[in-house]
Design a protein around this nucleic acid. Sequence first.
DNA 1: CTTGAAACGAGTGCAAC
DNA 2: GTTGCACTCGTTTCAAG
Lengths: 156, 156
Amino acid sequence: MKNATSLAKIDGIDKKILRFLMEDARKPVLEIARSIGISGAAIHQRLRKLEASGLLSGSKFIVNPKSLGYTTMAYIGIYLDKAMSNPMAVKQLEKIPEVLECHYTTGNWSILIKVLCRDNEHLMQVLNKEIQAIEGVSRTETFISLAQQIDRQISI
Amino acid sequence: MKNATSLAKIDGIDKKILRFLMEDARKPVLEIARSIGISGAAIHQRLRKLEASGLLSGSKFIVNPKSLGYTTMAYIGIYLDKAMSNPMAVKQLEKIPEVLECHYTTGNWSILIKVLCRDNEHLMQVLNKEIQAIEGVSRTETFISLAQQIDRQISI
DNA sequence: CTTGAAACGAGTGCAAC
DNA sequence: GTTGCACTCGTTTCAAG
């Protein structure tokens, strides 16, 4: 089995296919086939290969959080006590649904997380009642995202 | 036309459909139909409604950056000169493909960006030759993500 | 690695409830 | 708002170039 971290060799046709599907995962394979001038079966086989190589790690429907009343996004830097191990903290953070990302970072903090809340009050509750309540969390620094102006994937 | 920021009313069936598709955008509608016990046509119509309401903002194939040799992710806080407007800086940042996200944040920085690079050397080049070169960028603070331990969408 | 054909299954629109 | 049907179209496999 191929290691997921091994480099995939992709050619120009693979790139074209990926560019279409990164924009719209449900775009029919045959439509892509017509656009780039090869057969649908060829695309299908290339996709199977890309998937097997670990380059394609799935597809997702994107939901607009604003439509669900979630309008406040924030990054929170977390300082951990020396005694608190990172994996233990992550385990607790996983239980908080508002936490969308969690990074183990260099620099001031031990952990940087991204949270999505309905409003500032909701964010305050998550901070005070959920995150600060985690054993080993000593201090946090919050940065509210007033606007997300770029959001994209790696360009290929 | 409905405003994208208006709250969508979704029921339990909508939620079930969304949970399936947020995991795998290419999951066949009829398969979902069988799982939750309604007809395929009903799901099709609900999806059209959700799309029209702005709740569904598309679908994406997820590519694994490691397979392309991109192993270094970092967050960079950017201080802007007073004279430099945020939109002008964002316009420059958009031209840098390594910049995946850009947030206008409260707190110390004017801007917080997420970048994805092949390695530390590549990151250094992006920092020194691309980001620091932008007119109005006075100082940056870089936080390398040693590991991304959580990565998910809003839970519904 | 690519193609074309064939079989299967899914997407879509519509009429009816 | 849901259903069943019918038709169209896409997906997938396979043998062969």
